[in-house]
């Protein structure tokens, strides 16, 4: 019997990972991430938020709000995306 291409082989992606984030929510609607647990398992304090803008995560995260953050001397991008009825934070590798 002929076998067809299984779509499940193409659904996984290693290029994004979800992260735990501590965030402050203000009554005016602002949402500011304070610290983040990166893929090494350590929690890092976010020193500064450089930019917040709507942007798509092209590596598989989909559309969201991109927070460009500075941790020590490194600039990183974190995406806040909708998943079902919840929101999640993710980063690209």
């Amino acid at each position: 019997m002929r076998t067809f291409v299984n779509y499940l082989d193409y659904m996984e992606t290693d290029d994004i990972f979800y992260v735990d984030v501590n965030e402050d929510r203000y009554k005016d609607g602002r949402l500011i991430p304070v610290s983040v647990v990166l893929d090494d398992g350590k929690r890092y304090t976010i020193d500064r938020i450089v930019d917040i803008s709507p942007l798509v995560s092209t590596k598989g995260g989909g559309p969201g709000i991109c927070y460009t953050i500075r941790i020590r001397d490194t600039l990183l991008k974190m995406f806040l995306v909708d998943e079902g009825k919840t929101q999640k934070w993710l980063m690209e590798r």
Partner: peptide, 10 residues
């Protein structure tokens, strides 16, 4: 294709 980058190009 946006959510599953491995699909791109196929």
């Amino acid at each position: 294709m946006l959510y599953h980058p491995k699909l791109r190009g196929h």
